[in-house]
Amino acid sequence: MHRRRFVGIAAITALALAAPAAAQEKSIVVASTTSTEQSGLFKHILPPFERKTGIKVRVVAQGTGQALDMGKRGDADVVFVHDRDAELKFVAEGYGVDRREVMYNDFVVVGPSADPAKVRGSKDVIDALKKIAAAQAPFVSRGDRSGTHAAELRFWKAAGIDLAAGRGGWYRETGSGMGPTLNTAAAMNAYALADRGTWLSFKNRQSLVVAVEGDGKLFNQYGVMLVNPEKHRHVKKELGMAFVDWIASPEGQAAIASYKIGGEQLFFPNHRK
C-alpha cells in the first residue's frame, strides 16, 4: 500500500508540472540574440506589447546563427537577429518571410586600458585590427557564428589577417555568448568586438574600456521576420505577424528609442516602409 501511495505521489507531481505547459495562453516564441536579451531591451519593450495584444512573448536568446537555425527547424515563430547577409539568405531560402529592418546600434572594439596595441581613440576598425594582430595583443572572439562573430570575421578579412596562425595564441575563440566573451576578455586583458548594447549593460568590465568606435563599418542592423508558415504549418502566423508589425510600428519604434542605460540610448529605431 505504501508503495502504491508513492507511485501516486510521483504521478501527480509529474502531471501537475505538465499541466501549465498544456494550458497555453496566447503566446509566441521569438528566437533572438543575446545582445537584445542581455542588454535588457526585451524587458523594456515587451510589457507594452503584451499589455496591448495579450500575446505573451517567449524569448530564447542565442547567437544569430543559432537563432536562425531555430527558425529553420520551426522551433520559433519569429526571428529577431542582426546579421544582414545571413538574414537575407534565410529569407531567400524560403525559411523566413516579411523581414523588416527595425533598429540599429553599433559595434565597439573594447580593450584593456593599458592598450598594448596602441589603438585607443582610433576611428578605423580595420586599421586597429591590423595593429592588434601586429602587436600579437590578446584578442577574444565569440567564435559562435553569432551576428557579432560574423561582423568580426568580415573585419579581419578586410584587414587581410590570417587568423589560423594566431589561433590558440593571441587570437582566442570562446565559442560563447557576448557576456561570457567579455568576462574572458576582462580576465585576460584582451581586446574584443562587442555590440554596444551588451557592453553598456555589462557589469564586470574590470580594466576594459572602449578602444575603437565611430567607424561607419561598425554599423549593426537588426532585422525581424516571421518564420515561413508554409514551411512549418504550426507557426503562429497571426500572432507572430502582430509582433513583427508592432516592432516596426511607430509605437514599437518609440519603445525601442526610449530604452536607455545611464542616460545612454542603446538601440536606434530605423524602420522605413
Partner: peptide, 9 residues
C-alpha cells in the same frame, strides 16, 4: 548562467 553572462557576478 545568465547573470554570469551579464557580468553581474
Amino acid at each position: 548562467a545568465l547573470e554570469t553572462s551579464k557580468g553581474d557576478l
